[in-house]
Amino acid sequence: MERKIKVLVAKPGLDGHDRGAKVIASALSDAGMEVIYTGLHQTPEKIVKTAIDEDVDAVGLSILSGAHMTIFPKVLKLLKENKREDILLFGGGIIPKEDMEELEKMGVGKLFGPGSQTKEVIDYLRDWFEKNRK
C-alpha cells in the first residue's frame, strides 16, 4: 500500500488567527495527505506530544504573533530530546527574512511567508518525503 504523508498542523501561541492554518490543513488533505489538526493555543509541549503519539512525518506551525523565535527553537529542542529530530518542522506566518534564515540555520525546514501558494507547500512536503522517508 502506498504510504500516506502524515502532517500535524498546529497553531501555537496566543493569537487567534487560525485561517492560515485551516487553509493549509485542507489544502494538504486535498493533496491526499493525512492531517492532524489541533486548533488554537497549543504549547510546544503539547505539539511535540501529539507529533510523537501520532507518529507524523512533519509538523507545520502557523505563527502570526511574533513569537516564532521562541516557539520554533523550543519545539525543535523537544523533538530532539525525544529522539524524533527526524520529524520535519516547517511553518508559516509573518516572519522577517533574517529570522527565517536564522531559524533555517538551526534546523527548521522551509518557512512560508504571506503570498505563498498552497501548491508550494504541497510540493515542498512531497519532495521532502521522497528524499527522507522512502
Binding site: S29, G32, V35, Y37, T38, G39, E45, E54
Partner: peptide
C-alpha cells in the same frame, strides 16, 4: 477522491494532555 483526511478529534480532547497515562491515536 483524494485519499486525504483531516483528523480533528484532538480539538475537543484537552484531557489527553493532562494525563501521562493516556495515549491517543487518530
Amino acid at each position: 477522491f483524494t485519499g486525504g483526511a483531516i483528523l480533528g478529534d484532538r480539538l475537543r480532547m484537552e484531557n489527553i494532555y493532562k494525563f501521562d497515562n493516556v495515549y491517543m491515536r487518530s
